[in-house]
Amino acid sequence: MNEPVFSVKDLNVSYGGNLALKDVSLDIQPREITAIIGPSGCGKSTFIRCLNRMNDLVPGAQVEGQVMYHGEDIYGPQVDPVTVRRRIGMVFQRPNPFPKSIYDNVAFGPRINGFKGDLGELVERSLRRAALWDEVKNKMRKSALALSGGQQQRLCIARAIAVEPDVILMDEPASALDPIATVRIEDLMQELKQEYSIVIVTHNMQQAARVSDKTAFLYTEVDEESMSRWGILVEYGPTGGIFTKPVDKRTEDYVSGRFG
C-alpha cells in the first residue's frame, strides 16, 4: 500500500452554523480513481471542496478536523489556500471555460504561476493529455466559448492539468454532458489515472461503478427533532465490494436503486 494522498480525519463542515458534513474520515490512495456517491444533499460536493479549500470562498463556511495531504494538514496555520489549489486541480460540474481563447484558457494557470518554459509546448501537451488537441489544434486563438459542452469540459481538464497538479478533483464532471461526451470523459479519466490521483463526485452510480477503484458512499442523516440534516460517510472501500456486497443496509438500498 502506498502512502495515501489524502488522509481525512473527523472532518466536520458547517455553513453559517448548520452542519453539512459530520465526522468523515477516509484515506485516498495515489493514482486511483476514488468516487464519492450518495443521494443529493448528502454533502458530496461539500466534501470534495474541502480537499482543495474551495469552501474557504463560501462566506460562513467552517471546516473542522484534519485533511492531511502527503502528511501535511492543508488547514494548518502555515498553509495558504492558494498554494493548496496550485497542487490540487479541480474540474467543475458545469464546464466553466474563461471567456478567452482556447490557448489562453490552458495557458492561464501556468502564466499566473510564473511558468518560464515553453508555454506553447505545455499547452499542447496538456491538450493532448485531455484528448482535445486534434480537435482544437487549428483554432487555438478562437474563443473557448465556441466549443461544444463536452469539448469545453475537456478543455477545463486540460486547463487543470496544465499546472501539473498532483490530484484532480472532479465535481460531477459529466452531469451536464450528453452520453457520448460522458464516455469520452470517462475514457480520459482512465488515461489520467496513470499519472494523477482522481477524486470524482457523481450522482450516477453506473459511472462510479465503471470508472472508480474505490467508492465512498455518503448518506443524509436527519435529526427528527431539529429537522436538521447533514451528510455522513456510511461505507468506503473497493468499488467492486460496494456495489456487489455492501456491508451497510443503506448502501445496499442506494446502490440497488431503492432510493436516491
Binding site: 493514482r31 495531504y69 501535511e72 498554494t83 511558468f115 499546472v163 501539473e164 496513470q194
Partner: peptide, 25 residues
C-alpha cells in the same frame, strides 16, 4: 510548483518524487 521549465515529466515517468511541503510553498 513542479512546473518550471526544467521539471517536465513524461507520461512514462510516474511521479515518485514527493512534492515539496505546503508550508514551505
Amino acid at each position: 510548483g513542479g512546473i518550471g521549465g526544467g521539471s517536465v515529466r513524461s507520461p512514462a515517468d510516474p511521479r515518485d518524487e514527493r512534492p515539496p511541503s505546503l508550508s514551505a510553498l
